[in-house]
Design a protein around this nucleic acid. Structure first.
Lengths: 156, 156
DNA sequence: AGAAATTTGTCCGTATGTATC
DNA sequence: AGATACATACGGACAAATTTC
């Protein structure tokens, strides 16, 4: 019985079913979905079909997947919620020059540069990230910056 | 808009586009091309078409592909001696998301992003480097997982 | 610390049905 | 009618990250 795709494709039916389970709490947010092999057995479809269903859920933002781990149900953010996110839209910091930047600026790799980062959003989702790099020409050509290794990110 | 293959078949133009990216360094030699599924999304064509395009590149020697691994860009550069042409003012390429970009875009670390780099100069010296990152998700905005590409099913 | 089992990622080949030029 | 392309689905195999023993 291969591929009678009249009404709804099977992967979409499966995606909807899984979405239901997440929304109903059958698969609570933060927990793992059944493995692809399990779902394959449960719905009696090929693995590719399961993966297609999960891909649809991932695109829609219902789940996130990690290699070797599994697929997690994600907590749905309420968009009407109060924007308690104090995420700055622009930030300034010092970073070490990667080889390419070093080459462009004609400095040694690791030289500290000023990085300005701007984030633009569309509908709450990040649309674009712009990073601007400049030399920190601090009044003289060279100075020893062997100490402070600017602590990069620290993202949870 | 399916199948307007006037001048060239789709897989040919896609193969040419990928070839361009390899030659321009958007896909640096030795690195993996995006997965078939990714290319499928990016060019919005069927998988078979992508496979046809890659097969053409493989036959032409631009890429090699390994089962279960992916397709690698290969280098066969023997352009004329004189360095590179004048430096491009803006270059486009794919890069893996670092932890911070991944967090911002809400994708997995390592997800390929499009990076556009612009260099501005003052008196010949590089003054500023601007890197802009975007998702390479084809230009489809948000959609819920029950509609992919609008073929409204009509009852038979 | 190391080996095995799980699980996801990717590619391969094939197949059917639909649609358009 | 034939070539091109699309969408869907199957099954198998290898690769790589993670977890478990």
């Amino acid at each position: 019985m291969p591929t009678p795709h009249y009404g709804q494709p099977r992967y979409r039916t499966i995606a909807d079913e899984l979405k239901e389970r997440i929304e109903r709490g059958v698969i609570p947010p933060g927990t793992l979905l059944p493995a692809e092999s399990t779902l394959t057995a449960e719905f009696r479809v090929a693995r590719g079909t399961i993966r297609q269903a999960i891909a649809a859920l991932r695109e829609a933002g219902f789940v996130t997947t990690e290699h070797g781990r599994g697929t997690y149900a994600r907590l749905l953010r309420n968009e009407a919620g109060p924007n308690k996110q104090s995420e700055p839209k622009a930030r300034l910091r010092q970073v070490a020059a990667d080889p390419e930047l070093a080459s462009l600026f004609d400095v040694e790799v690791g030289t500290m540069l000023i990085e300005q980062e701007r984030v633009t959003r569309a509908n709450g989702a990040v649309e674009k990230v712009v990073r601007t790099y400049r030399l920190l020409r601090a009044s003289q050509g060279e100075f020893d910056c062997s100490s402070s290794t600017s602590p990069p990110p620290s993202g949870p």
